[in-house]
């Protein structure tokens, strides 16, 4: 006979098979169903379809034909533009990803020192660029290649340059400018999460830390604040990594697609070129699969690193 609570629990577990537990959770499944049916149709199924299509030749008119690894072999061995765009994407991601992440954290941390209306105002100033849709088009006006452009105008007036520079048509300026514009755009959801996360850090932790010998704000940040907001740090990382790998709209709007000597080409612009212009869907799917692996892989890697914060 079952006497203690644990024994009763064990017997209950034994008697409740998976099927029974599922039947008991009928209400839960019904509530989940609408979301997950749509999620399956528009997220899971597309990823699987992409993987399958990446092994085929498919032009939307004829049925796809299986061609094995050919798309991937062509991508890495024959497609010079893919290599350029892969290189650009990695440069953009390796710079804008971590830098924007640090900036989100730094500004959230400073904003946290302010109160009330001023804090709300500062939050708005830093967050606004990321939400106002195509506001980045203003950079076209700033970077106009003749002397009417703001940047050229000011540099000419201050005598730093003698002739107007065609910023977005000069190869060496394209990537650095894209990085600056992307950073301007990148204080988004992760930034908000940090601001809110800093608020939830228990104030008594700071007092306790001061007793234990934490002497300045930097030590406080590393030993108290960051470990306490680790969950937000994880969430922010996902947001920043995902957006730093998908840079494309800004590049197309400012540098054009194709850009001068492909200086602004990214994996996504390359994907759009094959998917929307040339209708080589199998090849475009292979590019999408590579991008998918890059994004998910670096997310997983960074999550591993972030678990060590404050240890």
């Amino acid at each position: 006979m079952a006497t203690s609570n644990e024994e009763i629990l064990a017997s209950v577990r034994k008697n409740s098979t998976l099927g029974k537990r599922m039947a008991k959770s009928k209400a839960s499944y019904i509530m989940c169903a609408p979301y997950f049916i749509l999620f399956f149709l528009f997220t899971v199924l597309p990823v699987l379809t992409s993987i399958v299509l990446s092994f085929t030749y498919f032009n939307m008119l004829e049925a796809p034909t299986f061609i094995g690894w050919d798309n991937y072999i062509k991508l890495f061995l024959d497609d010079d533009i893919f290599m350029v765009s892969l290189k650009n994407t990695l440069i953009l991601a390796v710079i804008t990803g971590p830098v924007s992440y640090m900036l989100c954290l730094l500004f959230a941390w400073i904003i946290n020192e302010f109160k009330g209306k001023l804090r709300a105002f500062l939050t708005l100033i830093f967050y606004a660029p990321s939400i106002c849709g195509q506001a980045y088009l203003i950079w076209n006006v700033i970077l106009t290649g003749d002397r009417y452009g703001y940047l050229n105008g000011f540099l000419l007036r201050w005598g730093i340059i003698d002739n107007a520079i065609l910023w977005m048509k000069t190869e060496k300026y394209v990537l650095p400018i894209l990085i600056v514009v992307q950073l301007w755009l990148s204080l988004g959801t992760g930034f908000l999460s940090f601001i809110a996360g800093l608020q939830t850090v228990d104030k008594s932790l700071y007092e306790a830390a001061a007793m234990d010998g934490v002497k300045n704000r930097w030590q406080e940040l590393w030993y108290v604040t960051l470990p306490a907001m680790k969950p937000q740090l994880m969430f922010g990382a996902v947001m920043q990594i995902t957006s730093s790998f998908s840079i494309a709209d800004v590049s197309i709007a400012l540098a054009g697609n194709p850009s001068v000597n492909y200086s602004g080409a990214t994996i996504v612009t390359h994907l759009m070129d094959y998917g929307q212009t040339r209708f080589e869907m199998g090849y475009a799917s292979a590019i999408a699969v590579i991008l998918f692996l890059l994004m998910v892989g670096s997310n997983k890697l960074i999550q591993k690193l972030l678990r060590r914060v404050g240890e």
Binding site: F39, L41, F42, T43, V44, L45, P46, V47, T49, S50, L53, V238, M239, I241, T242, S243, F245, S246, A248, V268, L271, M272, G275, M281, A284, S285, A288, L291, F292, M295, V296, N299, K300
Partner: peptide, 21 residues
């Protein structure tokens, strides 16, 4: 876990199959 995984890549990845679906 699938939902979290889905936040780790952007919509551009699924653009083409989405059109087909």
């Amino acid at each position: 876990q699938m939902v979290i995984l889905a936040m780790m890549f952007s919509w551009v990845v699924t653009q083409i199959p989405n059109y087909i679906i």
